[in-house]
């Protein structure tokens, strides 16, 4: 077995925060995303959640697919794997299955997770494999320049919906919950402490967890749909998105048109890799 040299040879720049230095790769920053893109905010939430949970970076694997969101994996300082479009959850399943002691986090987008990768999402949820999926839902295909996605609201515009989108949107966390996700939650970019807590609880959860985070894409979604600047889109989340605690105190009338953040499903069910350990026991007992 090879020796592990734990010396960290990096030098910290005074212009980099402790959190970013500890969990990210500052030499690859600033990131590629547009000004005001919410991906960076969500990435910081994930780093904070990892810090809160005291996860050893050597045991952490961040997996992503393809799209704006999926560039996030490479910015984390751990084992990172930027896979093919839609397949991040399938790769993550292999990693977790082969090495259950690793903490596996998938960073994905609405298109990656619910269109081209929708099948893997529902089946990973159904199996209850212990990975955490964070969906950066910007309701648009950003990397390719603004085509409508499975989460684009009906009536909104995209470059492939020049007359308005006639599709109905998915609620990705709800979709996964219906498929059996044992932890499913909604977060956003504005409510950072709440969303960070949801991500933290999702990672700590034994079993499949999904946190769908309402993202901000001022460049493609915002501009095409006259949603204003990144600040305007953040303000919309501030004013119209409410935490679960706030929602409890609100009347149905007050909740009309609001997006509620928080946990939508939490279940107790055997985790997949643990269940497989029992298969191994059975197979080896039966072999004698």
């Amino acid at each position: 077995m090879a020796k592990v040299d734990m010396t960290d040879v990096r030098e910290k720049d005074v212009n980099v925060s402790d959190l970013v230095f500890k969990y990210m790769r500052p030499e690859h920053l600033p990131h590629i995303w547009c000004p005001g893109c919410g991906n960076g905010i969500i990435m910081r939430d994930v780093a904070q959640a990892i810090e809160d949970l005291k996860i050893n970076r050597n045991n952490l694997v961040v997996v992503s697919g393809i799209g704006c969101s999926s560039r996030a994996a490479g910015y984390f300082d751990c084992s990172t794997i930027h896979t093919t479009h839609g397949r991040a959850i399938a790769f993550a399943t292999g990693i977790k299955m082969a090495r259950p002691e690793l903490e596996v986090v998938v960073l994905t987008g609405d298109g990656d997770a619910s269109a081209i990768g929708g099948n893997h999402l529902i089946h990973a949820a159904r199996r209850n494999i212990g990975i955490t999926v964070i969906v950066m839902n910007n309701t648009i295909y950003g990397m390719t320049g603004g085509q409508y996605s499975p989460t684009t609201p009906t009536g909104d515009y995209g470059t492939t919906a020049p007359y308005g989108n006639i599709d109905r949107p998915f609620d990705v966390a709800l979709l996964a919950a219906a498929a059996g996700a044992t932890y499913a939650a909604h977060g956003d970019c504005f409510h950072v402490p709440e969303t960070t807590r949801l991500i933290r609880d999702g990672i700590a959860h034994k079993g499949f967890s999904i946190i769908e985070v309402a993202d901000v894409c001022p460049t493609y979604y915002g501009r095409k749909n006259k949603k204003g600047s990144a600040v305007d889109m953040m303000r919309n989340q501030k004013e119209n998105f409410v935490t679960a605690a706030q929602a409890k105190r609100m009347s149905p009338e007050e909740l009309e048109g609001r997006y509620v953040l928080g946990v939508i499903q939490e279940l107790d069910f055997p985790e997949y890799t643990e269940a497989y350990e029992k298969v191994i026991e059975k197979a080896q007992g039966g072999a004698k």
Binding site: N15, V16, L29, P30, C34, P35, A230, V231, R235
Partner: peptide, 18 residues
């Protein structure tokens, strides 16, 4: 408070919510 102008893209989110 530390400002890293090399990484700042000028989105204005911090300004709006300070």
């Amino acid at each position: 408070l530390i400002l890293n102008s090399a990484w700042c893209k000028g989105c204005g989110i911090c300004v709006a919510f300070c």
